[in-house]
Design a protein around this nucleic acid. Structure first.
Length: 583
DNA sequence: GCCGTTTTCGGCCCGACTGTTTTCAGTCG
């Protein structure tokens, strides 16, 4: 059973947590966390690196000692140090740290004094009033533990999708903007970085003296609970369960605060370190030389002070963006307006809700030049997948529509199923009539890693295979990705010239950011598509663009930034290449 | 445990808020 980067990440994080509870040197703890994060953001699999004999200690934050850990994890599936730590401390202790207000110190006290090792123990002790008697704990802490353990036991800390985050943030920002004296109000945090899901909303506001923006915030009609309230920072929980932090700073600190509040934490730490080297103290109020503020009004100004160009929020993960900025090698990130057409759209013939004409009209409103109609193939019976003769029929319909259209092209396509044996669900004679195909896995999600990977890679050998749709099949928060070796899939794509889709549906975002970066690093082209089933879904493109930006993609990495002529040329060329490769 | 535009040793980001305290530790972002 091969070990994934996420497994190694988890091992390192658990080690960090246990070391912290043990009271180890905090910097040693941080070293483990940093290494875990480096591996999480890696576009290559560590297992693969180990097999090819690459030196892991060259990864940032991974030195001589830690460099050997992933190696032994890959070889043994676990880590000796972790086993030793688990021998000393019960594994459940790391769960206790999820309770708000409980960090390593308090967890250690709870364990030593009361022998608490699980959330159940904790809840019980709180009910019996045994916690408030401990030094450093009090009634309020005990009450919070009681509430929080109950919540944790029901719902595993829920993250919300970007589209839900938008729906919650929009009205709240508007409400805050209406406060007299309020100036800029902006959602920062992981939302601004377009992380695929967000745990809470971080809102930044600037306002004139005496503005009541903070009072107005905690008085918002949707607030269920005020967690903390201060002059410059407050936290509330909305009725939807979403936590929102508001931070208020003077206008002169807007850029510094936006930078600080956008994160990521790791990016901020790296920025502050560079500041220190230049004898600058950087905080949310500005960049300071001694007591004198030398920057803070804009983010550009802040970056300039430490000698860097502006870094886009989506890149701020401390995954090499600072190094790239230093060298002047930051990517010119893809933008929504670069997209010329959508390549994955369903009509009412299968499980969509609209006609081709309606979709074309909507696409034109988006400023697109083309649209690929990709109804399901016959295997997807629940969606009334099209049989060969029905595909023919649709092709003729599209030809007719195209004749009437000026300055817009409907591309003939299908979302064809990849069958279990790696063949496609429609015969070549049908596929060759189409401009492109979007190929995907819709059943047999539970194949082994090797079987699923082989299934997809085999399909890619078909000369009519154009785009692999939603490569891992995951539904965020609902369905785990199926087992598939993305590195192998990318290699197959590299070899055959197949394209990988970034499915922009906010529940899919598949490829994810790390896979986007992997594609870029391997020179595999991607397509950004919405998988539209209703007209409104066309708007989802922005979420796909967000992930693409997080994966460092530029317009040239994305095929549907091309004009329809260039796109068709590109598709013909790659089809020929595969045919030659296979013959 | 990592790392070097002060350093191969001695640092390691910084501030707000809470609760339990009588001046601050712990937690959080």
């Amino acid at each position: 059973m091969p070990i994934h980067n996420s497994d190694i990440e988890e091992i390192l994080d658990t080690v960090a947590n246990l070391l912290e509870i043990k009271g180890e040197n905090p910097f040693r703890v941080r070293a483990y966390r940093n290494a875990a994060r480096t591996i999480q953001g890696l576009s290559q699999s560590v297992a693969e690196m180990v097999h090819t004999g690459q030196d892991l200690s060259e990864l940032p934050g991974v030195g001589k000692d830690l460099g050997d850990y992933p190696r032994s994890s890959v070889e043994t599936g676990t880590l000796l140090l972790l086993k030793e730590l688990q021998g000393e401390l019960p594994a459940g202790l790391t769960d206790l740290m999820k309770v708000s207000g409980l960090g390593p110190k308090r967890v250690a006290i709870l364990y030593k004094e009361l022998g608490i090792t699980t959330l159940t123990d904790l809840a019980q002790a709180a009910e019996q009033g045994r916690i408030q008697a401990l030094g450093g704990f009090g009634k309020k802490t005990e009450q919070r533990i009681l509430e929080d353990t109950a919540k944790l036991q029901q719902t595993q800390a829920k993250r919300i999708s970007l589209v839900v985050a938008e729906q919650v943030a929009g009205p709240l920002v508007e409400y805050l903007q209406q406060t007299p004296g309020a100036q800029d109000v902006i959602v920062a945090g992981s939302y601004r970085r377009q992380k695929e899901t967000v745990a809470d909303l971080d809102i930044l506001a600037t306002c004139g003296k005496g503005s009541k923006v903070m009072d107005r915030f905690v008085g918002y009609e949707d607030v269920r609970q005020v967690v903390s309230q201060g002059q410059t920072r407050s936290t509330v929980i909305l009725r939807t369960g979403v936590q929102v932090d508001l931070r208020v700073v003077p206008q002169a600190s807007y850029g510094a605060a936006l930078m600080y509040f956008t994160g990521s934490k790791e990016h901020n730490i790296a920025v502050r370190k560079i500041g220190l080297a230049k004898k600058l103290k950087i905080n949310e109020y500005g960049a300071f030389r001694g007591d004198k503020r030398v920057a803070g009004r804009t983010e550009e100004e802040m970056y300039a002070k430490i000698g860097l160009p502006y870094i886009e929020p989506e890149l701020r993960e401390d995954r090499g963006e600072i190094e790239a900025a230093r060298k002047g090698k930051l990517p010119q990130l893809l933008e929504v307006r670069d997209i010329r057409g959508d390549l994955h759209v369903h009509t009412k013939r299968t499980d969509g809700h609209d006609t081709i004409e309606e979709l074309v009209e909507a696409a034109r409103r988006h400023g697109y030049d083309y649209l690929a109609i990709t109804d399901h193939s016959k295997h997807v019976t629940v969606a009334h997948g099209l049989k060969p003769e029905q595909v023919h029929e649709q092709v003729r319909e599209i030809d007719k529509i195209n004749k009437k259209l000026k300055g817009f092209t409907v591309l003939k396509s299908t979302e064809v199923d990849i069958l279990e044996d790696g063949s496609l669900d429609l015969p070549d004679e049908v596929l060759q009539e189409l401009d492109l195909t979007v190929c995907s896995v819709h059943y047999k999600f539970n194949l082994s890693l090797k079987e699923q990977t082989d299934r997809i890679c085999t399909a890619m050998e078909n000369p009519y295979f154009t785009i692999l749709a939603h490569a891992t099949g995951r539904l965020i928060g609902q369905r785990e990705p199926y087992q598939v070796d993305m590195e192998k899939v990318m290699k197959a794509a590299q070899r055959t010239g197949c394209i990988l889709e970034v499915n922009a549906h906010p529940d899919r975002l598949d490829l994810n950011d790390v896979h986007c970066k992997m594609a870029k690093d391997m020179g595999v082209k991607v397509a950004l598509s919405t998988d539209t089933h209703r007209l409104g879904n066309l708007d989802y493109m922005r979420f796909g663009v967000g992930q693409a930006r997080r994966g460092w993609l530029e317009a040239d990495d994305v095929i549907n930034t091309r004009s329809v002529t260039e796109l068709k040329k590109f598709l013909r060329k790659s089809r020929k290449a595969v045919a030659q490769l296979v013959s």
